[in-house]
């Protein structure tokens, strides 16, 4: 399944069906991050039930140094 993640087209295994599984796939679970799914910002509790499909747009952001 192809997803658009952070502006890049990324191929993920078909077993990845939810945002939680996507984070596990990239070993990002437990990190301080925020996911936006098709322009909807998700609360952490929503990761598990947010289902992914071909072509979905995902943004994964976090806090970096800044003034």
């Amino acid at each position: 399944m192809k997803l658009h993640i952070n502006g890049q087209t990324v191929d993920v295994p078909d077993m990845v069906t939810t945002v939680t599984e996507l984070l596990v796939h990239f070993e990002l679970q437990g990190k301080m991050l925020v996911v936006e799914h098709n322009q909807t910002i998700l609360q952490k509790e929503e990761h598990a039930q947010t289902e992914l499909a071909e072509g979905h747009r995902i943004e994964i952001v976090h806090f970096v140094g800044g003034g």
Partner: peptide, 20 residues
């Protein structure tokens, strides 16, 4: 402390982050 919000490099999960 101030921070900026930026895209994560999803291919480098082990990348250190100051907040952590």
């Amino acid at each position: 402390l101030t921070f900026a919000v930026r895209r994560m490099n999803i291919f480098e999960a082990s990348q250190p982050n100051f907040l952590s």
